[in-house]
């Protein structure tokens, strides 16, 4: 499979169809892979793809990384299904044009939840939770796909919400509040969860604003709560569930629980699934006259 991808990448670079191919290469130790930017056709042999390829590459297509892309007219990118969801969402949000991107889709069997868990094979003990029930193992939007693309039914909603969301929803309100306060106590506001998110594309994040300072910059509980609530609200209907924020958090906080819950909410309320359609409008920038308003007095 990877041979076909390498050949296609070589062809694209040799013909000058793309300026760069973004993919994965062997990392610093055998359990890790690293993102790689390939600009010369002879380097395509470095490309690999296997369950260790966990990074979400669309991060580099985000406007915040424009300086990296300076002068590149067309970028080819290797995408597993969930990454392609992120690309589609970026295009739908006008962060990116479809014709600037050449998507090399890979069939994906799932990835490991963390490099440390890699023991030579992928099994239930080390599979990332987002991969359970994944409906884009055969990607939905590609320019190149090795072999034939089987027909996949994507009409039913994809449910990769971790069990923790359901567990938390069953708790009483004050227990839930206590849970977050205990959990967020450890957050020291490194903002790794923001830096790694393909959809946090603001040039100046609201938490870096100082006039006015909307979010208390200190890493005490008030500031931490404001940060997480704001972040979750900004990603409503945009988070494509790559799980990178949780993986990046050095304190082991499950940052994406909020996002997963909000994904359920937009699906229930507005039947909207981020990352599947290039045209669908984000649910919060559109409206229907007869939207639900049972909570309004």
């Amino acid at each position: 499979m990877i041979e076909a991808i390498r050949n296609q990448a070589r062809l694209l670079l040799e013909n000058g169809d793309v300026d760069v191919v973004i993919g994965y290469a062997e990392g610093s130790d055998p359990s890790r892979t690293t993102p790689i930017f390939i600009r010369k056709a002879e380097d395509v042999e470095k490309l690999i793809y296997d369950p260790r390829c966990i990074n979400s590459l669309p991060l580099y297509l985000n406007k915040r990384h424009e300086y990296t892309r300076k002068g590149w007219k067309k970028t080819a990118i290797i995408g597993k299904g969930c990454d392609i969801r992120a690309i589609v969402q970026l295009i739908a949000e006008n962060q990116l044009k479809r014709d600037e991107i050449y998507i090399l889709g890979v069939p994906c069997e799932g990835v490991v939840s963390h490099p440390e868990k890699w023991d030579g094979s992928l099994h239930d003990g080390n599979r990332a939770s987002k991969c359970i029930g994944c409906d884009v193992m055969t990607p939905h939007e590609t320019d190149f796909f090795p072999g034939d693309k089987p027909d996949v039914d994507r009409s039913t909603p994809y449910e990769a919400t971790s069990k923790n969301v359901a567990t938390l929803m069953e708790l009483e309100l004050d227990k839930r509040f206590a849970f977050w306060r205990t959990d967020f106590d450890r957050c020291f506001k490194c903002y790794a969860c923001r830096e790694v998110c393909p959809h946090c594309s603001c040039n100046t994040c609201i938490t870096d604003e100082t006039t006015p300072s909307w979010i208390d910059p200190a890493a005490h509980k008030k500031g931490v709560f404001s940060w997480h609530l704001t972040r979750a609200m900004h990603l409503v209907g945009r988070c494509t569930g790559c799980g990178e924020c949780t993986r990046a958090c050095p304190m082991g906080i499950q940052v994406d629980l909020f996002n997963q819950r909000m994904k359920e909410v937009v699906q229930e309320s507005y039947s909207y699934k981020p990352g599947y359609s290039l045209e669908d409008k984000h649910p919060l920038i559109t409206y229907k006259v007869d939207d639900r308003e049972d909570f309004i007095k």
Partner: peptide, 10 residues
Amino acid sequence: TFRQLMDFHG
């Protein structure tokens, strides 16, 4: 959506 977020937050 915001109400649901606050609810999830406790």
